[in-house]
Nucleic acid binder design. Structure first.
Length: 260
DNA sequence: ATTGTGGCCTGCCCGC
DNA sequence: TGCGGGCAGGCCACAA
């Protein structure tokens, strides 16, 4: 599903859409529009405008326009971005293999004939104008060791829940978090504030490494833990049967032997 | 304020 | 072969 690496790929693809005049907008699914946005408002506002910058904070893709409005795109767990018929990601975990234009929830047509579209089978994503960027924490790709320590310190919430709290750290979803904690040898259910200094530094190191490695491999579903889980239920590191639990309200896989 | 829970949405997989 | 229940998780509203 779209976590930070996928949305970063979407952002790079969206660069193709910059500077092109918007000739038409289709918002066929009013439910997909968030924060009170209405289809007629989306259409009338964006028609004639142009995107001038692409940005990303965590899993939120931001497209600045030349009229001052910022278009915020969220992709939920099955949303994909296509520009000029090019998909940033061909197939998405959990999203199904088929392509279907009836899943296009938001389409921007350019005067030159191309288009930008959000294709989301399960409709868990959304489009908003001027999303509140201050509600998102520091981006997981940019977080410093001291920032990570600060957001963990003093909290009794499970480590996994804290790392997935988008208001504190933006970009990690279920798969990336499980993979990072598995690599760092940390129990997802540990109280966040219980980590020692060395453990926090270890977590930071593995967070960075996991993000860059999985991005290079092709996405948040390419982690060693995730791949192993689909084959069997044994830890790829030490062969122990993996634990399957609910932590922070999410299905969680971890190794009882090397994660503490 | 912080932490926890349930519901939204729908394609797909499994068992009958 | 068809059917139905359960599952997946990002995000938000709401409860404690």
């Amino acid at each position: 599903m779209p976590e930070l690496p996928e949305v970063e790929t979407y952002r790079a693809l969206a660069t193709r859409a910059l500077g092109r005049t918007i000739a038409a907008v289709e918002a066929p699914d009013a439910w997909f529009l968030k924060a009170g946005l209405r289809p007629d408002v989306v259409v009338s506002t964006l028609t004639g405008a142009r995107f001038v910058a692409d940005r990303r904070i965590g899993k939120l893709l931001l497209l600045d326009t030349d009229i001052g409005v910022v278009v915020g795109l969220r992709f939920g767990m099955t949303g994909r971005l296509l520009v000029d018929g090019i998909a940033a990601i061909a197939r998405l975990e959990y999203a199904g293999a088929r392509d279907n234009t009836t899943w296009d929830r938001f389409v921007v047509r350019f005067a030159d004939g191309g288009d930008l579209r959000v294709r989301d089978p399960r409709r868990l994503g959304g489009v908003a104008f001027d999303p509140d960027e201050s509600r998102l924490g520091v981006d997981a790709l940019a977080v410093t060791p001291s920032q990570l320590s600060a957001l963990l310190r003093g909290s009794t919430a499970p480590l996994k829940a804290r790392l997935m709290d988008q208001t504190r750290l933006a970009g990690l979803g279920n798969l990336l978090t499980d993979e990072t904690l598995w690599r760092a040898g940390l129990d997802p259910a540990r109280p966040s504030g219980s980590l020692s200094g060395p453990e926090r530094r270890r977590l930071h190191r593995h967070l960075r490494r996991t993000l860059t490695e999985l991005s290079a491999r092709g996405g948040s579903h390419t982690g060693d833990l995730h791949i192993a889980r689909s084959r069997g239920a044994c830890c790829p590191a030490d062969g122990a049967p993996l634990d399957r639990r609910t932590v922070g309200g999410r299905t969680t896989y971890s190794c009882p032997v090397h994660q503490h």
